[in-house]
Design a protein around this nucleic acid. Structure first.
Length: 271
DNA sequence: AAGGATACCTGAATGC
DNA sequence: TGCATTCAGGTATCCT
């Protein structure tokens, strides 16, 4: 599942490879034309140069000097591939940015999760407006996390997944973070002690950075711009490990449903 | 306003 | 082999 670290890696790769390049053509493959106003999009994108790449939560933003920005959410299975780096099979693209000698293709995701908007109007976009703070951003501190948690009446796992509070954490990282913090996924968010908030803050930042360092998690579909996979999934302590002994106390890892999401945890370490 | 339940979407795995 | 079903976890939306 692409979550914050995976999207952050893609952002860096896009900055390295497509920033400053001009889009010669925007191609919408056959069969996908009905999903977006093709001629409007072509007019807004073609001839434009990529002048900025940003990540907001799990969304990627490509800013063009035409005054428009592409806003993309990869959902669960979306992939971005750059033809000059990736020599495997071409995938089922729904959108292709053609830079002439090189093509960036967006695949496996429905065009309804791609937005083309005026860069000036960007902050009005509801999907962006609702996003909470970024756990790897400058302003994110243990103090701020504590203030957010104090307002949370639901379970801590659901709190972490709610993009309105903190943007970028998904089901996989949430489980790993809570395991590292020794906090049960069913604890009520506002019940965490000051010490637990501090621990949660540190493990959150640490786990996300670790995902970054290991090239992201490719348990399912995530790949880099060149098609290569990350390796963080090999380091999971709880995700997908139901029945296996906990790495700390050897108690079998359990699975339950929290807020309708599969949740792995150690019943002994996490209280 | 916030949280819970539900629906929809995709690919993978499973069953017949 | 191939089709239908189920599951998974993203988001959006409705309801309380």
């Amino acid at each position: 599942m692409p979550e914050l670290p995976e999207l952050e890696l893609l952002k860096n790769e896009l900055r390295a490879h497509v920033l400053g390049r001009q889009v010669k053509e925007l191609a919408v493959p056959q069969g996908k034309e009905d999903a977006c106003p093709v001629s409007q999009w072509k007019a807004a994108v073609e001839g434009g140069t990529v002048v900025g790449v940003e990540r907001r939560g799990k969304m990627l933003l490509l800013h063009l000097d035409t005054g428009f920005s592409l806003v993309v959410h990869l959902m669960m299975v979306g992939q971005l591939l750059l033809s000059s780096l990736h020599d495997g099979e071409p995938h089922d693209a729904c959108l292709v940015l053609d830079f002439g000698e090189d093509q960036l293709s967006l695949g496996q995701v429905h065009l309804k999760f791609v937005r083309l908007v005026c860069t000036r109007e960007l902050e009005k976009l509801p999907e962006l407006k609702k996003l909470g703070c970024d756990p790897l951003g400058e302003g994110f501190t243990a103090l701020l996390l504590g203030e957010l948690l104090a307002r949370g009446k639901g379970k801590i796992k659901s709190f972490l997944l709610d993009q309105r509070h903190i943007a970028g954490i998904g089901n996989t990282y949430a489980d790993e973070i809570l395991f590292q913090a020794g906090i049960s996924p069913t604890r009520v968010a506002c019940s965490l002690t000051g010490e637990e908030v501090q621990t949660l803050y540190l493990t959150m930042v640490c786990t996300l950075r670790r995902g970054l360092d290991l090239g992201g998690s490719s348990e399912m579909a995530f790949v880099h711009l060149d098609g290569s996979r990350g390796s963080f999934q090999k380091q999971f302590q709880v995700k997908g490990r139901k029945g296996e002994p906990c790495s700390v106390c050897s108690t079998p890892i359990e699975k339950m449903s929290v807020g309708g999401r599969g949740t792995y945890f150690c019943p002994s370490c996490q209280v």
